[in-house]
Design a protein around this nucleic acid. Structure first.
Lengths: 141, 141
DNA sequence: AAACAGCAGATAATCATTATCAGAAGCAAA
DNA sequence: TTTGCTTCTGATAATGATTATCTGCTGTTT
């Protein structure tokens, strides 16, 4: 993904374009991992030594409010971020906390579940998330 | 649910029986809400004024380790607790944070999703949770 | 190029959760 | 019932992630 693309996306959302925002968004868009704010900060620190962790947090909030990324939690008390807007299934390692995408298209099944939940609930349902918990390949030894 | 029952459940798990543990477990077993540790503490404070929030946290950890309750997170950074061991669907209000059970039996759909995830993932999957996010009846005005 | 609004970075505050430790209580055996 | 050991509770403090504040700087528009 080119800088120009990210810049245009930000502009379209009415957001100012800054090097930090581009870097943070690209960091998320360029990985299939689901990094925490701390991880994003560490990965960008060598390239942008002056960028603070606080800025990472605030930028992630801005990007989430703009609908460019998603924030979610698993079982620990750390937020994780994902630039993939499509609904999908996350696998969470019970030991090391790593989060992976489960490959495959779950759109149909998720839509069916969603429809049933909408029918059974008095909530105004917007979206849904499915998390499966287990041991990742490394942690199962 | 009688005290004697809860006491027996605790004993069967090899746990000591204390008034605090009985009260906290009953508090969870007697509600369909999904209280936070703070909420449990407040609800029991009138009856057990000396019980500390710390004890609530530690007891909830013990009960979870024994498999009597479940701990989960939604979209905020607060843990919620549930005495219902059966897998089911939670509805989370995006505005007030309240969590409700979605009525209905989702066992078949969840099992199908689980099977597909197990087949597609290299994780050793233990259990899964489905959260649907939206506005609760009160917050949608 | 200038001026304004919004952003980045440093610092400190907040909040939920967990650690520590001394005293109290549950449990088993005598 | 009492003793003794072990575990639990409660008070206090520590931790760690996240957010608030404020000042100087930067992106944007004219």
């Amino acid at each position: 993904m080119k800088d120009k693309d990210v810049a245009q996306i930000l502009r379209d959302k009415g957001l100012r374009v800054t090097p930090q925002r581009i870097a943070i968004y690209e960091c998320l868009a360029g990985t299939t991992a689901h990094p925490t704010a701390e991880t994003v900060y560490q990965q960008l620190h060598s390239k942008y030594p002056s960028m603070s962790l606080n800025t990472v947090y605030k930028t992630l909030l801005v990007l989430e409010a703009a609908g460019l990324i998603q924030r979610f939690t698993t079982a620990d008390s750390v937020f994780r971020y994902d630039a993939n807007p499509a609904e999908h299934v996350h696998a969470v390692c019970l030991k090391c906390g790593r989060v992976s995408d489960v490959p495959g298209d779950f759109g149909e099944e998720l839509e069916r579940l969603r429809a049933k939940a909408v029918g059974n609930s008095d909530y105004n349902i917007r979206y849904s998330t499915l998390l499966v918990y287990g041991l990742c390949p490394e942690c199962k030894r």
